[in-house]
Design a protein around this nucleic acid. Structure first.
Lengths: 203, 203
DNA sequence: CCATCATTGCACATCAGTGTGCAACGAAGT
DNA sequence: ACTTCGTTGCACACTGATGTGCAATGATGG
């Protein structure tokens, strides 16, 4: 139905690998230093700067590609999780669990939102914000999430929190993910006992 | 006891005003774009680029001065609030209320933590982190705050949340401050009813 | 064996920002 | 009035990053 792979020749496959490797290490390098240059990315990818420009004519093209990937992945997680008929808080737990590696991976976009590429990124991330707000609003309407703050704001805050944790020192390993899940549940108004039960008392 | 002002001459006062104005607009300009240049800051301050270099020999000097100011102000708020013998959650509410304008004002330091100036800023903000962790730990020990997450991590998360809200679109006005206060209380494990009572049900 | 082509290494121009030097202006201090 | 000095407006050199052009190389595919 989707994605026909016509047995690409070795050359095309090699190029795809190179391209993906560049995108891959770009997330790492830019994740540690959003101001890293094309040369740094190229070096980390094991290629020369000139080669990177062969795949991405400008720095903006690279960043935009990364942003599009992020939107695609996050949207996929969000829609898949929302498809089920579980309670909103349980859905949220699953969402964070699956969002976590993605958020950590694309944490650079949060820093790049500001200055020079801000507009492009913000535009691409718009649909994600809406989906997120919808999820939170459904939780509020069903009485699972508290209504101390409007859904639009609350979703943005929760969104920011997950990224803040993914962006912090405790981004690696399970403690970070666990902290992000519990904390976000609490801030959504889920009682502590229920939150602990959802995430499992002892890991 | 502190701060003797020996009736400064008009010249010195003018210089101090210029210097403070530069630092003031630097927070604004850098707050919107952390990569703004000295020229942008100078223009916004109504002076020429050369003049800025007269007060701050390098860009690092300017940023360090801003960071030192932030540490001074935040530390002052933190110690003053902690001096009282109120409950930990009430203390937290007052803390956020007074921290809010400061956090919003110095939000640029969060973005500047990464890349080039990161080390200097991180070093200066260290003491603040400790004070914050102490406050959270006291709340946990007194049973007011939940212990689902270690104090060190929890304080960092709450720290990040407040800055995340101060850094977001809803940074201006009371709704942002209210959202930050309620949200941080909830994530600290304070029950919703108690949190709403502390912050006031209707503003 | 030969052609294709991704990759390389080097060239170059361009641009933006940093930091400095210095003469000149103009308001404040004596 | 004369001096001091903050400020200005230019000058310059330096650095680092971006983006492009082009010949050489070497592996792949016909």
């Amino acid at each position: 139905m989707m994605g026909v792979v016509p047995t690409e020749s070795s050359r095309v496959r090699s190029m795809n690998e190179t391209r993906e490797r560049i995108l891959d290490v770009a997330l790492d390098v830019l994740g540690e230093n959003p101001d890293a240059g094309m040369g740094d990315i190229a070096s980390a990818a094991g290629v020369v700067r000139r080669t990177v420009y062969g795949y991405f004519p400008s720095r903006l093209d690279l960043v935009q590609t990364l942003a599009e990937q992020a939107v695609t992945e996050v949207t996929a997680v969000l829609t898949q999780v929302s498809a089920g008929d579980a309670a909103a808080d349980a859905t949220w737990v699953e969402f964070i669990a699956r969002l976590w590696p993605v958020a950590h991976r694309y944490r650079v976009l949060l820093a790049l939102r500001r200055g020079e590429y801000g507009e492009a990124i913000h535009g691409l991330l718009g649909p994600v914000d809406e989906l997120l707000a919808d999820l939170v609003k459904r939780g509020q309407d069903s009485g699972v999430f508290a209504q101390h703050v409007p859904a639009g704001i609350l979703s943005q805050v929760a969104y920011g929190v997950v990224f803040a944790i993914a962006d912090s020192d405790l981004s690696n390993g399970t403690p970070g993910a666990r902290a992000a899940t519990i904390t976000s549940l609490l801030m959504l108004g889920v009682p502590e006992t229920r939150a602990m039960a959802l995430v499992g008392d002892q890991p």
